[in-house]
C-alpha cells in the first residue's frame, strides 16, 4: 500500500470519528464518543482482517476466493458447537480452524484439482455453508437446546488500558490481539520465507515456478488451507468473541467486505489490515449511531460501509494489481 493511500485511509477514519463527534447529541461527552469509536473500530476490524488475510494466502497463490464468507460462517458454527460441547473455548477455536481448513480443502479440490471455475466453486461453498449451518442450527442447536461456552475474556495491557480515550484500545479480547500478531506474521511468511516466495511464484507465474521445481498444485492446496484456517479463527470471532450464540447467516457479508479490503489493500497484509480498519470504522459509526444520539435514521447510516466498499472498489483512489495468475487453473503440459 502506498503512503498516499495509507494517509487517505487514516484521514477517512479520522473523518468518520469527526462525523460521529459532529452529530452526537450534546448529552454524550466527546471523549466517550472518541473512545467508543476507536475501540469498536479495532474490534470490528478483527473478522475483516482475518478474512482478508485468509483471502491473501489463497489469492496470492493464484486461487480466487469469494468463499471467505462461507468459510467463516461454517467455522463460526464449528467453533460454537465444539466450544459448547467441550465447554472449552480453546477447543472451540481449534475446531473453527479445522472447519475453515476443511472448507478450504473443498475449495482447493474443486478449483485446483477439478478446475471448476473458481468463482463458481466459491459460490458453491458459500451456499453449502449457509445451507448446512442453517440446517444444523435448527436440528442440533435449537432442538437439543445447546448453549454456548461463553465468551473469551478481554486481555488488558497493564497501565495503558487505564489511559482515558485510548484506554479501551488496550483491552481487547484474545482473537483481536492474535489478529494484530497475524498481520505481522503473514507479512514475514509471505515476503521473508521460501514458502512465501513459492506461494507468490505460483500465483504470478505458475509455469516458471513449475519449471523451477515447485509443485503448483501442492503449493496452492497448502496456501488455500492456511487461508482457510485463518478464516476459521475469524469464524471463531463471531461465536466466541462477539456473541456466545450461533445464528444462521451471522457473518452477514463480512467475508465479502474482507475481500474488498484485501483488494483495496493491494494484496498485502498491512494494506489489508488498514483497509479493514476503514470498513470497521464505518461499521462502528453505524453500530454506535443510536448510542451517540445521531439524528440520522439507523438504516441510512447502515448503508455506509457497503457504499464505501463499492466506492473504494470502483477505484476512486487508484487501481491495484492483482496476482497475475489469479483465477486460472494450472494445466501442466
Amino acid at each position: 500500500m502506498t503512503r498516499g493511500r495509507f494517509l487517505f485511509v487514516l484521514g477517512c477514519i479520522a473523518g468518520l470519528v469527526g462525523i460521529a463527534e459532529a452529530l452526537r447529541s450534546p448529552d454524550v461527552p466527546a471523549a466517550v464518543v472518541a473512545a467508543s469509536m476507536l475501540a469498536t473500530t479495532l474490534r470490528f476490524a478483527t473478522p475483516l482482517t482475518l478474512g482478508a488475510l485468509a483471502g491473501l494466502f489463497c489469492e496470492r497463490s493464484g486461487v480466487a476466493n469469494i468463499a471467505i464468507e462461507g468459510m467463516m460462517l461454517a467455522a463460526a458454527f464449528g467453533a460454537f458447537i465444539v466450544g459448547a460441547l467441550t465447554k472449552s473455548l480453546a477447543a472451540g477455536i481449534v475446531a473453527g480452524m479445522v472447519v475453515g481448513a476443511l472448507m478450504a480443502l473443498l475449495h482447493a479440490w474443486l478449483s485446483v484439482t477439478l478446475r471448476v471455475d473458481q468463482i463458481v466453486s466459491g459460490t458453491v461453498i458459500n451456499i453449502m455453508a449457509a445451507g448446512v449451518t442453517g440446517f444444523l442450527s435448527t436440528e442440533v442447536v435449537r432442538r437439543q437446546a445447546i448453549s454456548g461456552a461463553g465468551l473469551l475474556p478481554a486481555w488488558r495491557v497493564p497501565g495503558l488500558s487505564e489511559v482515558p480515550v485510548i484506554g479501551p484500545l488496550f483491552q481487547q479480547q484474545p482473537i483481536a490481539w492474535v489478529t494484530l500478531a497475524l498481520v505481522v506474521v503473514a507479512h514475514l511468511v509471505l515476503f521473508r520465507t521460501a514458502w512465501g516466495l513459492r506461494v507468490r511464484a505460483v500465483g504470478e507465474l505458475p509455469r516458471a515456478a513449475h519449471a523451477a521445481g515447485v509443485s503448483v498444485a501442492r503449493t496452492r492446496y497448502a496456501a488455500v488451507m492456511v487461508g482457510g484456517a485463518i478464516a476459521g479463527i475469524g469464524g471463531g470471532y463471531f461465536t466466541l468473541e462477539a456473541v456466545p450464540v450461533f445464528e444462521p447467516m451471522m457473518t452477514n457479508g463480512r467475508g465479502f467486505i474482507a475481500l474488498a479490503a484485501l483488494i483495496f489493500g493491494g494484496w498485502t497484509p498491512a494494506g489489508a489490515w488498514v483497509a479493514s480498519l476503514l470498513f470497521a470504522a464505518a461499521n462502528a459509526l453505524h453500530i454506535n449511531a443510536q448510542q451517540f444520539g445521531i439524528p440520522v435514521p439507523a438504516q441510512v447510516v447502515g448503508m455506509f460501509p457497503y457504499v464505501l466498499t463499492i466506492v473504494i472498489l470502483a477505484g476512486a483512489i487508484g487501481r491495484v494489481t492483482p496476482p497475475a495468475a489469479i483465477g486460472q487453473p494450472y494445466v501442466r503440459d
Binding site: 457497503y306 466498499t309 463499492i310 470502483a314
Partner: peptide, 16 residues
C-alpha cells in the same frame, strides 16, 4: 468502467 468485481458490488448492493 473501473473493473470493480461484480461479485462484490452486487452483494454490497444487496445489503444497501
Amino acid at each position: 468502467r473501473t473493473g470493480a468485481h461484480e461479485v462484490i458490488t452486487t452483494i454490497m448492493l444487496n445489503y444497501i
